[in-house]
Design a binder for these strands. Structure first.
Lengths: 212, 212, 212, 212
DNA sequence: AATGAATGAGATTTCATTCAT
DNA sequence: CATGAATGAAATCTCATTCAT
């Protein structure tokens, strides 16, 4: 009310930052809890407590509890896609190893977000479609294109590129899903490298055209 | 009073059948709903309605709602393990194809049970441990032994058998998990066969010792 | 329908006995349970189980659960009143001792009935009025008359007979209530005698006219 | 943020008052209802209605219905023990009269609490043990010591002090229990005085060493 | 914006009673 | 008469959301 024309922009910038910080605190708290016991078993009271604010304050940042879930699910920015968007991703063995390594590199702080998205996708249609499938399809498409290219280049056997992509994704899934399910801890960088190498070797020697 | 000794068994048999029918009706209704929207989002009212009985009747068969969940999770009898217990499972290409085919053969009626177990494992510790991990470990162990045998026989490359088992499971997971997540429909028998064949080919040509 | 005029009476007699036996079994089971955990915390299922019959069978003998309670409360036939109705009850020290002794003589099998009546009187108006107060008032009246007689005979001090009666009842209550509350075990016959003697001595030396 | 150090205490004080008022309102409402119809026959709906709040609000103050009961039972602060702790309690006739008088002085507002504790003790083990018996034993012990002292001083007859204590408690019970049971109204101050006087006279003339 | 007590709709669970067998 | 599964009304309890401060 006292603010004049000059204050606004500054206020707004600050305000934006403050709002962003608030949202972040909430999302981080929520992600951890969602990852542990699931969305439905987490109360807004718990989220507020972990975010160190009052229950009512949550509603200054989100419309409702589900809004927090959707934000958490969307936030989860795994480096998977980045890794796969690299046009060199399947260029040669080392590139593939590097790709798997990077794709498995989910930071401790990102894990709850990824877990939440993965878990709640089986229960929430919006998350399944807008957050989960969209990414999977994107990855699938990139992989398919890469593989088609390698086939055209005479490096891979002339298989169904779509199925090949699915195969690669499966193998990657076998590496990362246990951690997302909470059934296994996150692999250390060393474990990631060694896993990636072995898996790529096994994959390649099947997928690569054999010279005999 | 005189014919008690004879009546009891008959009464019990009838009673057993009636109870089994009741339990089964409830579990079947519950499994479908759990698979669709998750345990926490399914109300006892919905279960009762779908099982065509009064809400209170549920409690003549189960102690509480979670009791239904546990029964559903335990019930899920996928043919996976049976398929894998076949000592011939990895004998040759055809045996492997057949194994994958059988392991993917989840009937429409069993699917909700399997889905429930798969989904709720990430939220319910008892299910995760007693129902989910137990089976996974069993499968893993069987595969590892099979693979170690093939390596000893000079058929497979001398890789880490444990990692090989994980690889096979990953590939199988890539085939079946989408259906369990509700992200894809169950594959038809034909699709199963074709999927199994391609996947085995890709797997084998990596795992098989290359001559020349 | 087949029965003729001669059968009826015999049938009826047998029937009466059978019915009486059934009621008794139920009441005995119920009294025990009511005494342990109270009427409201006892389920018909428990009563039926303890009476070794099916739940539905209860309703062949009683209109409803409360009917069982009322019957139990009414049944409780403590020897208190009988003891007090003896015209000699307060005649001399020995008679008084004997009276207290007899009045405390609640058999193990009667205890649950007495306990139930005592406990539920504080919650159930019908029991309070029709089963509890009626008896208390009767006892009070008898005692008052006895005491008035002793005063007239110059044996007791010229006190308010009503208050004297209340005093005697209080002392008796102090002896028996703990057992009814479940706070103390039933006194053995020896304990009863010794208690009665001491209590009477204490009572008498206050109530008896002192000769100086 | 600046004035936090100062605000907190004030906030807390206000909060304490508000909470205390809430708890008190609930306990008062509950005590009245429990005293009338018993714990098991009182619904949370009734309690909330009488406390003039929504049913759910109860659970902001207590974990569950039983929590309310326990709080009510604990609250009941009868002046009995205070009266008995007076070292002069049995000093002479007037002291005894005064003691009984004070011990009977249960205010109208405290009565439901006392009634609840008395009634529910027969059904709830925690209340019986932690709330009821503890106090009875305390009273008993104090009385016993007083009496032993009077005996040593040659004022009372050389009786068993424990039994004497029980006797005093019985007489007191006879005075107060009817009110606790709901079988009689609370005595007015005048009635209390007159009752105490008569009862003490009767007690004393038995318990007091007779000169003659 | 922040607070957190109050709300009330809705979920789970209990259990006396009925009724078909 | 006996049975016990089915019923459904009612009780307890949870928790996302609101709102006065």
């Amino acid at each position: 009310m006292v603010s004049n024309a000059m204050d606004r922009p500054r206020f707004n910038a600050r305000r934006q930052r403050r709002i962003a910080r608030g949202r972040q605190r909430i999302m981080s708290a929520a992600a951890t809890l969602f990852a542990q016991t699931g969305f439905a078993n987490t109360t807004t009271k718990e989220i507020a407590h972990r975010a160190d604010m009052a229950e009512g304050t949550l509603y200054n940042y989100f419309d409702n509890k589900r809004g927090i879930l959707l934000a958490v699910a969307k936030e989860a920015e795994t480096p998977m896609i980045a890794a796969l968007q690299d046009p060199q991703a399947l260029e040669d063995r080392d590139a593939m190893v590097s790709m798997f390594e990077k794709a498995m590199d989910i930071s401790e702080s990102q894990l709850p977000f990824a877990r939440t998205r993965f878990s709640e996708a089986s229960v929430d249609d919006v998350i399944l479609q807008e957050s989960f499938m969209v990414r999977l399809r994107k990855i699938h498409q990139l992989l398919e294109e890469h593989i088609a290219g390698r086939i055209a280049a005479g490096v891979f056997r002339p298989i169904d590129a779509a199925l090949g992509a699915r195969m690669v994704m499966s193998v990657f899934g076998g590496l990362i899903v246990p951690a997302l399910r909470g059934a296994a801890p996150l692999p250390s960088p060393e474990e990631r490298h060694s896993l990636a190498e072995t898996v790529v070797d096994l994959l390649l020697d099947g997928i690569r055209l054999r010279d005999s």
